[in-house]
């Protein structure tokens, strides 16, 4: 079974607004806080969602070469979490 072009387009037209709404809500939570873990968690959720969505969008853009970008994005947000956690828990970043 092959997916026809118009199905892809319909799919995108439906998912894009929903996804953008989610992205905006995450951004609002990230900017409002009120505590640091709230912000970090919101950024996390935002970026992992984004990473998943980038893969979906790559189908719409007909460019499979765009997919590795999603993996790299997820990888770096993992690193971001780690050093914010480290910042909050220790005296020196290197110890």
């Amino acid at each position: 079974m092959t997916v026809s072009e118009s199905e892809v387009i319909t799919f995108i037209i439906i998912t894009l607004p929903i996804y953008m709404a989610a992205f905006t809500l995450y951004a609002v939570r990230a900017l409002k806080g009120p505590t640091i873990p709230d912000t970090v968690l919101a950024i996390d959720a935002m970026t992992y969602d984004l990473a998943a969505f980038l893969v979906v969008l790559a189908i719409f853009f007909r460019s499979p070469i765009l997919i590795p970008t999603a993996i790299v994005l997820a990888l770096w947000v993992y690193a971001l979490d780690i050093y914010v956690a480290k910042y909050l828990e220790s005296k020196e970043m290197g110890e």
Partner: peptide
């Protein structure tokens, strides 16, 4: 309207 540009990479 449903044909976006592509990245400058020849596949």
């Amino acid at each position: 309207p449903n044909r976006p540009p592509i990245p400058p990479v020849l596949t």
